[in-house]
Amino acid sequence: MMVENRKGLNLLCHALLALGMLAVAFPLYLMLMAATQSAEQVTAVPLSLLPGGHLLENLSHVLASPDGGLAVPLWRTLANSLVMALVIAVGKIVISFLSAFAIVWFRFPLRQAGFWLIFATLMLPVEVRIFPTVEVVTQLGLINSYTGLTLPLIASATATFLFRQFFLTLPPELAEAARVDGAGPLRFMLDIVLPLSRTNIAALFVITFIYGWNQYLWPLLVTHDPAMSTAVIAIKGMLGEGAVQWHLVMATALLTLMPPLAVVMLMQRWFVKGLVDNEK
């Protein structure tokens, strides 16, 4: 949709974009380079912008040993992050799918009230009800458990809305036909609605996986045992008192950002579509 072909304008755009790319990529590039340096190399001022050849050494060091400010080896907290992200993603998708299905295809008492209650959670992010929520989790004995890490976060108003919105676009004849064929609601849900929702589910998976992986405040509050904590929390301990070992910090950062970054990059198309449609 180029209106006029101005070489100068085009060049200017590319130049500005190059600056933008630099601003986005340089912090990441620097992390990558620092992660390849040895303990002495990383203290050079300025840091070398060329790789130092110690990448695998640094990665395996943080993965295997509780060193440089890590209380437990990183593989442990990475595994916790993975569990947390997967359970939250799958959990959010499942319970939102079910409740949206109920809202659209059933009529029952409290349907409207339930809908509004779910809607109200939009106004109550974890951050604003921190301590009372922790208290509930404590009373249920869920501190330092995977259930405590995940269950309270899997309610999702946005996912429910997305599914509801999508279900409302499906032709009513679909349910009619299913009923004529003698299929019950659960058959209809599993054989017809679920396959049709594939794209929405894929998009939601990306968004909720990242949400789960990147949670910070919640794991900070409900885990006291470092072995039950997550990778994004563990890295904070490496910045504490004493000399920060940046080559190990950056090796940890690299390992911690790879999984969500890979998910976004591999599923970029669904993610972009899902995000923009979801919110609008």
């Binding site: 319970i95 079910l98 409740s99 109920a102 059933f106 009529r107 339930g114």
Partner: peptide, 10 residues
């Protein structure tokens, strides 16, 4: 059944 499906979220 509808209520039951909504129950986990609720």
């Amino acid at each position: 059944l509808g209520f039951l499906l909504m129950l986990p979220q609720l």
